Amino acid sequence: MPVGTVTRGTTNTNRLRRVDRWIAVQPQLRRASDPLVVDLGYGASGVTAFELATRLRRARPDVEVLGLEIDPARVRTATAQLEALRAGRSAFPPDLDVSFALGGFEVPTPEGRRPAVIRAFNVLRQYDEAEVAAAWGRLTSRIAPDGLVVEGTCDELGRVASWVGLGASGPATFTLSLRLTALEQPSIVAERLPKALIHRNVPGERVHELLTALDRAWRVHAPWSVHGPSQRFIRVARTLRDEGWPVRDGVRRWRLGELTVDWDAVAPR
């Protein structure tokens, strides 16, 4: 039996574009000997799996995406959508290497293959915080030795998102990604933190300190708004790095409203 609980299954076109473009540049995908990617808990429609395959094959033309859902009705719906895609009755390329199957946190794969990447988005948000560690453990036990689990959440339109990047040994990074146009303050992401952090945005916790530092830097660099919100956010990222936060990447990622730090910088106390 699939491991997990049926959740709401909300799905919107283009909702996961921010996390998809992050996955596309990760070495765990680009260097994988077997570029199998699992879209775990894709929801009421298979569109997120189609979008994921379309975006990732620009980086890995041989990428293969397997959508897994715990609800048999959702698997039937996605399979029918796939048949329409193969017949050319879809906006997606008919040759996308995508398939769908029944499955949960046990992550069943053809011939026991170990995925290079597992994306589990807007799944654990509906679980209890106490269940997160076990779910992470199941997922990381299924990936390739140098694989990646991406677990997080976003708003309904994909304008605010955050996620944890996990390797075989556990969580390694935390990323937030924001639509910068008309952004009032970066701490809006507090509403869409992963389940492991969403209840930790309180004084004394590291993630609260990060969001406080982000808001402060966002205010300080308000004059850069005349050059556009991306330039303002670039200065915010540089300020946090100068303050000692373990900020990763560089301008190419920051201009997208994306900031990644080491997991230890936000891990619950």
Score class of each variant (00 low, 15 high):
residue 122 N to C: 09
residue 92 F to I: 03
residue 85 L to N: 14
residue 89 R to C: 09
residue 142 R to N: 08
residue 95 D to F: 07
residue 112 G to Y: 01
residue 71 D to G: 04
residue 40 L to S: 12
residue 88 G to I: 08
residue 88 G to T: 13
residue 32 A to I: 04
residue 79 T to P: 03
residue 154 C to S: 15
residue 33 S to C: 14
residue 96 L to E: 11
residue 143 I to D: 02
residue 116 A to Q: 04
residue 44 A to C: 05
residue 124 L to R: 00
residue 154 C to F: 12
residue 30 R to I: 08
residue 64 E to L: 01
residue 41 G to F: 02
residue 73 A to G: 15
residue 94 P to M: 07
residue 130 A to G: 02
residue 43 G to T: 15
residue 88 G to L: 11
residue 93 P to A: 01
residue 147 G to M: 09
residue 49 A to G: 05
residue 70 I to E: 06
residue 121 F to S: 10
residue 119 R to L: 09
residue 67 G to L: 11
residue 114 R to M: 00
residue 97 D to G: 02
residue 120 A to S: 15
residue 86 R to D: 03
residue 38 V to E: 01
residue 36 L to N: 01
residue 60 R to N: 04
residue 118 I to C: 07
residue 155 D to P: 06
residue 121 F to K: 04
residue 56 L to W: 09
residue 157 L to H: 11
residue 118 I to A: 11
residue 45 S to N: 05
residue 116 A to M: 07
residue 84 A to D: 13
residue 49 A to Q: 08
residue 146 D to Y: 04
residue 52 L to F: 07
residue 61 P to S: 08
residue 72 P to F: 14
residue 93 P to Q: 02
residue 82 L to Q: 11
residue 158 G to E: 07
residue 99 S to D: 12
residue 123 V to T: 14
residue 133 A to Q: 09
residue 72 P to T: 13
residue 89 R to Q: 14
residue 105 F to Q: 05
residue 118 I to K: 03
residue 154 C to W: 11
residue 88 G to A: 13
residue 156 E to R: 05
residue 124 L to I: 00
residue 71 D to H: 05
residue 136 W to Q: 10
residue 83 E to P: 05
residue 170 G to K: 06
residue 160 V to T: 15
residue 151 E to C: 14
residue 138 R to G: 00
residue 89 R to E: 15
residue 81 Q to H: 03
residue 46 G to L: 06
residue 66 L to V: 00
residue 138 R to I: 00
residue 67 G to P: 13
residue 103 G to T: 00
residue 130 A to T: 04
residue 120 A to I: 07
residue 104 G to S: 07
residue 98 V to Q: 05
residue 49 A to Y: 07
residue 34 D to V: 12
residue 69 E to M: 12
residue 128 D to Q: 13
residue 154 C to P: 11
residue 168 A to L: 10
residue 88 G to H: 09
residue 117 V to T: 05
residue 74 R to W: 13
residue 160 V to C: 12
residue 143 I to E: 01
residue 154 C to Q: 11
residue 110 P to S: 05
residue 65 V to D: 09
residue 90 S to K: 04
residue 99 S to G: 14
residue 167 G to R: 06
residue 52 L to G: 09
residue 163 W to S: 04
residue 164 V to L: 14
residue 90 S to V: 10
residue 106 E to M: 03
residue 162 S to N: 08
residue 116 A to S: 10
residue 40 L to A: 14
residue 154 C to H: 10
residue 108 P to A: 10
residue 127 Y to M: 14
residue 98 V to H: 03
residue 128 D to C: 01
residue 87 A to H: 00
residue 82 L to Y: 08
residue 53 A to N: 00
residue 78 A to N: 06
residue 133 A to P: 00
residue 131 E to Y: 06
residue 140 T to L: 03
residue 143 I to Q: 07
residue 37 V to D: 10
residue 34 D to T: 04
residue 77 T to K: 14
residue 94 P to F: 09
residue 81 Q to Y: 01
residue 76 R to D: 12
residue 42 Y to K: 02
residue 75 V to I: 13
residue 158 G to M: 12
residue 139 L to V: 14
residue 110 P to C: 07
